[in-house]
Simulated assay, not measured.
Amino acid sequence: MRRPGSVRTLLSCLSATSLSVGLMALGGGAALAAPDTPPAAAKPMPAQVVAPYFETWTGQSPAELAAASGNKYLTLAFLQTAVPGSCTAYWDGETGRPISKDTFGRDIAQMQARGGNAVPSFGGWSADTTGTELADSCTDVDAIAAVFKSLVTTYGITRIDLDIEGDSIDNAAGIDRRNKAIAKVERWAERTGHSVQFSYTLPTSTTGLQANGLAVLRNAVDNGARVDVVNLMTFDYYDGAPHDMAADTATAAAGLHDQLAALYPKKSSTRLWNMIGVIEMPGIDDYGPEETFTTEDAVTVGKWAAAKGINTLSFWALQRDNGGCVGTGGSDSCSGIAQDTWYFSHTFEALTAPHHPHH
């Protein structure tokens, strides 16, 4: 049973479209590569990566905030269709912001030049509850695959994130189309020498995925779609209980590890841990004070992530990584707790530091 309101922020309380911030067209990126030639910057993602979500509807520059916060990688949220039934994806569903060099091309090129990259993310609460998540909206598998490919060829990105919750996580037809499209893109990437990974971002309980989240992955296996990473939203449990957010992250991920072991019996435990990602929400989340991720929790989770060898450490969202609104829950622009600016970015970044001690 899905928790009603679950992850409303990952999902943008600020419905992305309501904010239509006339984003300046950020033109001038590198010239477009020939359709099937990977841009030179397309390096595969590292085995361990920190990639906080960036709220793309604010009008801010992801490259500037990445540099300011010390992040090399950001997950850009979100891509969705403008209307249900469409097969065209836009940033935040805004038709003036297509998948093109003019939208985020210069930013992504700057992040790549600094040794990082962007991870475009589809879906989120707003799209997943309005029929505008790409595979829910578009009934043509080839058209869905074409959108995924266009991100690889336009921006030189090497991972695509799919945030599936709300109505989308129970939409069997959309789930099947999405996984078929993933499998097609993976075969295309092998043929053409592109590097592309797919991650699923899914709601979780404190003990792992619920039945509908697991069904998404089972369908991927059935369709021959390789899922590289499963990101758990280890916040917004919506169960009315007080939470030790760091401890609950560990139990949720351990539960997912065992679920993945059943789905992928040939993979070693080490490989399974390296398929797992966790997404925190710094400070007071949108559920309330019972779900507060503290500065101490960040240290604990960072050490745990390094020790377990998990793939991705993330949080919602980069724009919240400051102490500008102590006592406020669920803000899109501050954590609600006393903290230094970029505290969570700097603490998590230790995961990928070259000489990070693994003890």
Rank of each mutant, 00 (worst) to 15 (best):
Pro46Gly: 07
Gly70Phe: 03
Thr132Gln: 09
Thr249Val: 15
Ala220Tyr: 03
Ala47Lys: 12
Leu162Gln: 13
Arg159Gly: 03
Ala262Leu: 10
Pro289Gly: 05
Glu133Ala: 04
Pro4Cys: 05
Ser195Ile: 13
Pro203Ala: 04
Asn171Trp: 03
Ala250Arg: 02
Trp91Met: 03
Phe148His: 12
Gly131Asn: 04
Ala215Tyr: 11
Asp222Thr: 12
Thr9Ala: 10
Asp140Pro: 10
Cys87Asp: 03
Gly131Met: 05
Tyr287Ile: 15
Ala66Asn: 08
Ala306Met: 13
Asp321Tyr: 05
Trp304Gln: 00
Arg320Leu: 05
Asp170Ile: 01
Ile175Lys: 10
Thr207Pro: 08
Leu263Ser: 03
Gly208Asp: 06
Asp107Met: 10
Ser205Val: 00
Gly324Asn: 14
Asn212Arg: 06
Ala66Tyr: 06
Gln60Ile: 06
Pro46Ile: 04
Gly324Ala: 09
Arg191Ser: 14
Ala215Phe: 07
Arg187Glu: 11
Glu165Tyr: 04
Phe293Tyr: 15
Pro120Arg: 09
Gly329Asn: 12
Ala145Val: 10
Asp297Trp: 02
Val7Ala: 12
Trp188Glu: 09
Val230Arg: 05
Leu256Asp: 12
Pro44Thr: 01
Leu10Ile: 11
Thr328Trp: 06
Glu94Met: 08
Asp285Ser: 12
Gly116His: 02
Cys334Ile: 08
Leu151His: 15
Tyr155Pro: 11
Trp125Lys: 06
Ile144Thr: 03
Phe235Thr: 14
Ala40Ile: 08
Gln110Ser: 12
Gly70Ser: 04
Gln48His: 14
Cys334Ser: 03
Ser61Met: 08
Ala135Gln: 05
Ala25Gln: 13
Lys267His: 15
Asn311Asp: 05
Ser6Lys: 08
Asp161Tyr: 02
Glu349Val: 02
Tyr155Phe: 15
Asp36Thr: 15
Arg97Tyr: 14
Thr292Gly: 07
Ser137Ile: 04
Thr153Arg: 14
Thr153Tyr: 09
Thr75Leu: 04
Gly324Asp: 02
Phe78Trp: 08
Leu202Asn: 05
Ala145Asn: 15
Asp244Met: 09
Gln339His: 12
Gly329Tyr: 12
Ser314Tyr: 04
Ala31Tyr: 05
Ala25Trp: 12
Lys184Cys: 02
Ser195Arg: 13
Gly309Cys: 09
Val147Glu: 11
His243Cys: 00
Asn219Leu: 00
Arg8Ser: 08
Ala41Cys: 12
Asp244Leu: 02
Ala146Asn: 11
Ala68Lys: 13
Gln210Asp: 06
Met245Lys: 06
Phe235Pro: 05
Ala338Lys: 15
Leu26His: 13
Ser335Val: 09
Thr251Ala: 03
Pro265Val: 14
Ile279Lys: 00
Pro4His: 11
Ser150Arg: 15
Val147Met: 10
Tyr155Met: 04
Ile337His: 12
Leu202Gly: 00
Ile169His: 07
Ala305Met: 14
Ala225Lys: 03
Tyr238Glu: 10
Ser345Leu: 00
Ser86Asn: 07
Ile169Met: 04
Gln259Asn: 02
Gly131Asp: 10
Ala67Met: 01
Ile276Tyr: 09
Leu260Phe: 10
Phe198Pro: 02
Gly166Gln: 04
Ile164Leu: 11
Arg226Trp: 00
Arg226Ile: 08
Gln112Ala: 10
Ile99Phe: 09
Pro84His: 11
Ile144Pro: 07
Leu256Met: 15
Val229Gln: 11
Asp167Met: 00
Val49Gly: 01
Val229Lys: 09
Pro282Val: 08
